Computed example of a mutant assay.
Amino acid sequence: MDRTLETFLAQVAKRAGYDSPQQAARAVQNVLEVLGAHLVGDDRTDLARLLPKQCGPLLTATEPASEPLAPAPFVEAVAERSCDDVAEARRAVGAVLPTLAEVTDDALLRRILTQLPPGHAGLFGRTEPA
């Protein structure tokens, strides 16, 4: 698996329909920071190791959230972080999380989804685990 930042950003940009790698980088930063606040322990660090080295700290340096967020509030948190509207945040989440799922093995993705409230699998482009 190619784990270069350029490749990762290109995948996000293509999925979101962004015109530039800078837009993709901004989306990646905002989504990973919100996601990182909602993951704990080895799952967070295991996921960070699978990402381009520049992306890992975005997950691991974030302070843990005080409460879990359902999918809609998760998207709203990305909107607040990025100062974008909810539609643009949904676009970012819909590009970053499925790209993340592609670099993550199924076992780790299942563990991540068990840390998040029900409904997040769809944000990753997956069906809810049974």
Results as ranks from 00 to 15, higher is better:
4 T>E: 10
4 T>V: 12
9 L>P: 05
13 A>D: 00
15 R>D: 02
15 R>N: 06
16 A>L: 06
17 G>V: 01
17 G>I: 04
18 Y>M: 00
18 Y>R: 03
18 Y>K: 03
19 D>K: 09
20 S>Y: 02
20 S>C: 11
21 P>Y: 05
22 Q>L: 07
23 Q>L: 05
25 A>M: 12
27 A>E: 00
27 A>I: 00
32 L>I: 12
33 E>K: 07
34 V>K: 05
34 V>H: 04
35 L>I: 00
35 L>R: 04
36 G>P: 08
37 A>D: 07
37 A>K: 03
38 H>I: 03
38 H>M: 10
38 H>T: 03
38 H>K: 07
39 L>R: 00
42 D>W: 05
42 D>A: 12
43 D>G: 04
44 R>T: 02
47 L>M: 12
47 L>E: 11
47 L>G: 11
47 L>K: 14
48 A>F: 07
48 A>D: 13
48 A>M: 08
49 R>P: 05
51 L>Y: 05
52 P>G: 04
53 K>E: 11
54 Q>D: 13
58 L>S: 04
60 T>P: 02
60 T>V: 12
61 A>G: 13
62 T>P: 04
62 T>Y: 03
63 E>T: 15
64 P>S: 12
66 S>D: 14
67 E>S: 14
69 L>K: 13
69 L>P: 07
69 L>M: 09
70 A>D: 15
70 A>R: 15
71 P>E: 09
73 P>G: 08
75 V>I: 13
76 E>H: 10
76 E>T: 08
77 A>D: 01
78 V>I: 05
78 V>P: 04
80 E>D: 14
82 S>I: 01
83 C>F: 15
85 D>K: 06
85 D>I: 09
85 D>N: 15
86 V>Y: 01
86 V>K: 06
88 E>W: 00
88 E>M: 00
88 E>V: 00
89 A>P: 10
89 A>L: 12
89 A>W: 02
91 R>L: 11
92 A>R: 01
93 V>H: 04
93 V>F: 03
96 V>S: 02
97 L>D: 10
98 P>W: 08
98 P>Q: 07
100 L>V: 15
100 L>F: 09
100 L>K: 11
101 A>Y: 09
102 E>D: 13
102 E>Q: 13
103 V>N: 10
106 D>W: 07
107 A>M: 12
109 L>S: 10
109 L>I: 04
110 R>F: 03
110 R>N: 07
113 L>C: 04
113 L>T: 06
115 Q>L: 00
116 L>H: 09
117 P>L: 12
117 P>H: 14
118 P>T: 13
120 H>A: 05
121 A>N: 14
123 L>C: 07
123 L>P: 06
123 L>A: 07
124 F>H: 08
125 G>F: 00
125 G>I: 03
125 G>D: 02
126 R>Q: 15
127 T>R: 14
127 T>H: 11
128 E>K: 10
